[in-house]
Simulated assay, not measured.
Amino acid sequence: MARRKRSKKKGNDAVNFLLLLFLLGAGGMTGWNGCSETDNPDHTGNTENTGKPGANHYPDLETVSIPKGLTSQIKEYTGFTVSFNKDNGTPNYVAWELLGKEVANDVQRDDNFWTDPDIDGCPSTKDYTRSGYDRGHMCPAADQKWSAQAMYDCFVMANMCPQEHALNAGAWATLENKERQWAQRDSAIMIIAGPLYDKNDTKRIGDAGVRVPGAFFKVLMAPYLDQPRGIAFVYPNMTSPGNMQDYAMSIDELEEILGYDFFPTLPDNIEKQVESTYSFKEWNNSK
């Protein structure tokens, strides 16, 4: 993909600036190598799903291009797609579409964590026992209340990362709640989430040696608006004080950190529009 002009809006406050310094100054991501991509045919963001006649139709929005050589096993579950990295014991990313009409459904939370034998290196829930870390969902259970199978699937350990409880129950949960509000407002949003590792992230837990990330990222896009928009967030794997906008950045800026290419199937002009700039104010607007 042709290189895009980077946004001039880098680090909108001291917290975000320090976070970027940490991620970039620590030597960048190590072990990011390997390319694999896919899409989920059940949730591809088509106009039938959104219920919006004449809405933009962009196929394969769960596709992510990742650096060559990165260990990746792709599997499509009900409602989301995982790129799993057996070297880390965590996903490279998890991608899904959240429809506004799904948010109000009432399938009960499953809480049955399970190991997928089809995923090479998929850890056990016991690998997290007494580790001091939560089994942090990348695709959250509350996004899967539309289907009993989707609820069951989202408790697969391939969807988990070691997450500090203070983050999992704090700022990360707050962002997840906001995403559901935004999906209802915008008809649907695409979400991609995963861990961020740098060379200093050497701690591992459990017999499987699940690698503990230093931070987490999330990418959001509202593709069916007249003017599609996107935003990214990065949270350190710890208590995250301040406001949500302190951790926001453009998708381009996150791509620079990760080496990933999000939404490569979008037309170039739409991709540039969605990824080069962001406005937290627009995203957080209730209308």
Rank of each mutant, 00 (worst) to 15 (best):
Y247H: 10
N40I: 06
D87G: 04
N168I: 07
P117M: 02
G214H: 12
I189M: 04
R109G: 02
S65G: 01
S187I: 09
T30C: 15
A14K: 12
M190F: 14
Q73P: 07
D116R: 05
G69N: 12
M221D: 03
E48M: 03
D261F: 07
I205V: 14
A55S: 15
G136K: 05
C161K: 06
N112L: 11
A169C: 05
N243I: 09
C154D: 09
I74V: 15
D106M: 07
D207K: 15
V212I: 09
D268T: 11
S65N: 14
A188I: 05
T30R: 15
F217A: 04
F233N: 11
D106I: 10
L99V: 02
Y58L: 09
I119A: 09
A222R: 06
F262M: 01
E255D: 04
E102N: 13
D13T: 10
G79R: 12
V156D: 09
N33T: 14
K86I: 02
C139I: 04
N112W: 06
V212A: 13
N159K: 02
Q163F: 10
Y93Q: 12
R211Y: 00
T44I: 15
M244H: 00
M157I: 03
R135E: 00
V103E: 03
P91Q: 13
L21M: 14
K52N: 11
M157K: 04
Q184N: 01
L99Y: 10
C35T: 15
S72H: 14
K145T: 13
H57I: 06
E76Q: 14
G214P: 08
L70C: 13
S72G: 11
Y93A: 07
S250D: 02
C122G: 07
Y128A: 01
L266H: 06
D127S: 08
N92C: 06
